[in-house]
Design a protein around this nucleic acid. Structure first.
Lengths: 152, 152
DNA sequence: CTTGACCTGTGACCTGCTCAAAGGTTTTAA
DNA sequence: TTAAAACCTTTGAGCAGGTCACAGGTCAAG
């Protein structure tokens, strides 16, 4: 397969294929006639793997390591498992943050839509975000208590 | 306040303060004697706001816009609200993705720990990740059916 | 007065791509 | 057959959002 073909097969930008090749994730052969890169089915597997792993939040360096380990799989590679566990922990942390965030934002939107004057002004939003890490329960209170102390 | 002081007050890297200043988010005065930047409490407010907003996933450009609107708050700035709504939608999307991801990863870890041979090898993980977007129900099946077709 | 900790601006580096330029090759169609 | 379109190559720049390093100016303590 040529660059565009493998790119199409994996639904990625051909430049991404070239980039991954430069980075050493893919190992195409060379056509000696014209210097074109020739990718095999193994490269497609690696590329698809890499794309999935990227979606999971793995870095290219991590993917590189995993792929390298898998290449000569004589090693039991506990490192791969470590990376995976580490990623899972990060995902869970991020997830919790995002959930808290979403709840806050929903509260904020709800508070705005029930505000007497209807449209929130910039200051309202700024104050809301400024106090973002106040205790969650006090968000709407913060919102409605918009006449508080000024900073200048 | 000087750069390091405001940076410390907001728990950010001084270089981030300089960067934000270059980008026009902060407006320090200049000490004519030595050319040092002098930040006021308003800048600290803006900086803290900016950091919170970044955590919420707002881009610096968005923050810039919000801050500008808030500066001369004569405008009702529906744009700020639009940005916020848009962000909320993105957060919810990302959240759903991460939840699916976490579930998959947990399943994978569980499957590994109950595997007869104990330690998963690189190929096992590769196969797992390769088939990541198969129908979710079939994940553990994919795992246990590791004797399938090989790609080499 | 020297030392060390700050300040200044400028510019390089990082990740994970994406795009553009300049030139060679292959395919397609008239 | 040949011209044009559509590929291929390498190189290098650009994006966000910082971070860090460099060279030189400034300031407070001893």
């Amino acid at each position: 397969m040529k660059v565009s073909e493998i790119a199409k097969a994996a639904s990625v930008n051909p430049d991404t294929v070239r980039f991954y090749t430069r980075e050493g994730l893919l190992h195409p052969q060379r056509n000696p006639d014209n210097g074109y890169k020739h990718y095999g089915s193994e490269d497609l597997t690696r590329l698809q793997f890499a794309r999935k792993a990227r979606q999971l939040g793995f870095s290219l360096a991590e993917i590189q390591s995993i792929l390298d380990q898998a290449d000569h799989d004589n090693s039991p590679c506990p490192m791969v498992r470590d990376v995976f566990e580490h990623r899972l922990a990060e995902v869970e942390t991020r997830l919790a943050e995002l959930e808290a965030l979403r709840d806050r934002m929903r509260d904020a939107m709800a508070a705005w839509s029930t505000m007497p004057d209807g449209t929130p002004d910039g200051h309202t939003i700024c104050r809301l975000i400024e106090h973002w890490d106040d205790s969650p329960e006090r968000q709407t209170e913060t919102l409605s208590a918009k006449g508080g102390q000024d900073d200048e």
